[in-house]
Amino acid sequence: MSIVLGDNQYGKAETRVVRIDRDAEAHRVTDLNVSVALSGDMTDTHLTGANDKVLPTDTQKNTVYVFARDGVGEIEEFGLRLARHFVDSQPTVGRARVRIEQYPWTRLELEGAPAHHSFARSGEGTRTAVVTYDGRQAWVVSGITDLVVLNSTGSEFWGFLKDRYTTLQETRDRILATAVNATWRHEGAEDTDWGKSYATARRALLDAFAETYSLSLQQTLYAMGERVLRTCPEIVEVRLSLPNKHHFLVDLAPFGLDNPNEVFHAADRPYGLIEGSVLRDDAPPAGMAW
């Protein structure tokens, strides 16, 4: 029997960086969490401890800060700049993957007018990007996490399988709520208006959720992915993870009261988790995108 080294990578995870663009008319906040992972021929390092091929993770952290000094822009652009730098500048780095989360800040209003330099963290969901570059090709996956949405009606759930352990009752009118976690793969990494693409995809997800009369969360998942693909020609695949945020009708009969579908208990766990992907039938291979 022989034992060999398998796939491996190393990097600096979750470098927090906040950049303030101090424009005269109004400041802008860019709040990021950046993780870098590098890979190459690291056999000697793992087997003998030789570090001559290792770019210290502290150096990777410093690089994030230095690149932020020159401006961030759209997070996909920032990720591409970093990934290409690590691969193109270091002969022992064969692939770089940069994961970025961008936390949203909303400008406050003072007497109906936007404030110059005052902000509040908003609940609009966290924007994400994963950029992978191998020296020849770049892959970009954009996305959003924790986008919490709710339909107070327009959702049913019935006709499901039943066995001796089934207690769930069928319903023709229920609350449908979820925290959308979505990622989408771009056909290419060049000549894309990343800001417009993200805004359009996010809008498509919300529109599909609101406009779909849902008989299952799976049906809603497909409608959301399909809407993104029909709206954004630069996107070839959408992956969604939708936790079902259950709302159970409270029994008020012990108190001599009815409950005409108005008072609910919001349960945080356990929860149903619906996941799937929607893609174009002519989508190019994913390569190392995911």
Rank of each mutant, 00 (worst) to 15 (best):
Val98Thr: 00
Thr63Met: 15
Arg107Gln: 12
Arg84Gln: 13
Arg81Leu: 13
Pro114Met: 03
Val130Arg: 05
Leu82Ala: 06
Lys61Asn: 01
Ile100Lys: 03
Glu74Gln: 12
Gly40Arg: 01
Arg69Pro: 03
Leu47Pro: 00
Ile144Trp: 07
Asp146Arg: 11
Leu38Ile: 02
Tyr65Glu: 03
Ala83Met: 05
Asp31Glu: 11
Val87Asp: 01
Val93Asn: 05
Glu77Cys: 07
Gln90His: 14
Glu76His: 06
Val141Arg: 05
Gly112Asp: 07
Tyr103Val: 13
Leu38Phe: 04
Ala68Gly: 00
Thr48Ser: 14
Gln90Trp: 01
Arg121Thr: 09
Pro56Thr: 08
Ser35Ala: 02
Val64Asn: 01
Gly49Cys: 08
Glu74Lys: 00
Gly143Glu: 04
Ala96Gln: 00
Ala96Ser: 12
Val131Met: 06
Trp139Lys: 01
Ser142Lys: 00
Leu38Gln: 03
Asp44Gln: 13
Gly94Gln: 12
Thr59Cys: 15
Glu77His: 05
Thr92Asp: 13
Val66Leu: 14
Thr59Tyr: 12
Thr126Leu: 11
Asn33Phe: 04
Val98Cys: 06
Asp31Trp: 00
Asp44Ser: 15
Asp41Val: 04
Val64Trp: 13
Ala68Thr: 03
Arg127Pro: 05
Ser39Asp: 12
Asp134Gln: 13
Trp139Asp: 14
Trp105Thr: 03
Val54Met: 04
Thr128Ile: 05
Ser122Asp: 15
Val141Asp: 08
Ala120Asp: 12
Ala50Lys: 06
Val141Glu: 09
Thr106Met: 10
Glu109Arg: 03
Thr92Phe: 10
Ala120Val: 10
Gly123Val: 03
Thr153Asp: 08
Lys61Thr: 02
Thr92Asn: 13
Glu111Trp: 01
Leu150Asn: 07
Lys53Cys: 13
Thr45Tyr: 09
Leu32Met: 05
Gly135Met: 10
Asp41Met: 08
Gly143Ile: 04
Asn151Leu: 08
Pro104Met: 11
Asp88Arg: 13
His46Gly: 07
His85Leu: 15
Ser118Asn: 09
Pro91Gln: 04
Gln137Cys: 07
Val34Asn: 00
Pro56His: 02
Asp58Gly: 14
Ser35Arg: 00
Tyr65Leu: 14
Gly73Pro: 02
Arg95Glu: 15
Val93Ser: 07
Val72Ser: 07
Leu38Lys: 01
Asp70Cys: 08
Gln90Thr: 11
Thr126Gly: 06
Val148Met: 09
Glu74Cys: 11
Thr126Val: 15
Ala129Ile: 05
Arg107Asn: 06
Thr48His: 02
Leu47Ser: 13
Val141Pro: 01
Leu38Arg: 00
Val149Thr: 06
Arg84His: 14
His85Gln: 14
Asn151Asp: 08
Thr45Met: 06
Lys53Asn: 11
Thr57Glu: 05
Gly112Lys: 02
Glu74Asp: 15
His85Val: 07
Asp41Gln: 09
Gly135Gln: 06
Ala68Leu: 11
Thr153Arg: 02
Tyr65Met: 10
Thr126Cys: 06
Gly79Pro: 03
Phe78Ser: 01
Gly143Tyr: 03
Val141Thr: 08
Val54Gly: 10
Ser35His: 00
Leu82Gln: 01
Asp146Ile: 10
Pro104Cys: 04
Gln90Met: 07
His116Cys: 02
Asp41Arg: 05
Glu77Ser: 15
Leu32Asn: 03
Thr43His: 15
Pro114Thr: 03
Glu76Val: 00
Pro56Arg: 00
Ala50Ser: 13
Gly71Met: 13
Thr92Gln: 09
Trp105Val: 10
Ala129Thr: 09
Ser122Phe: 14
Glu111Leu: 11
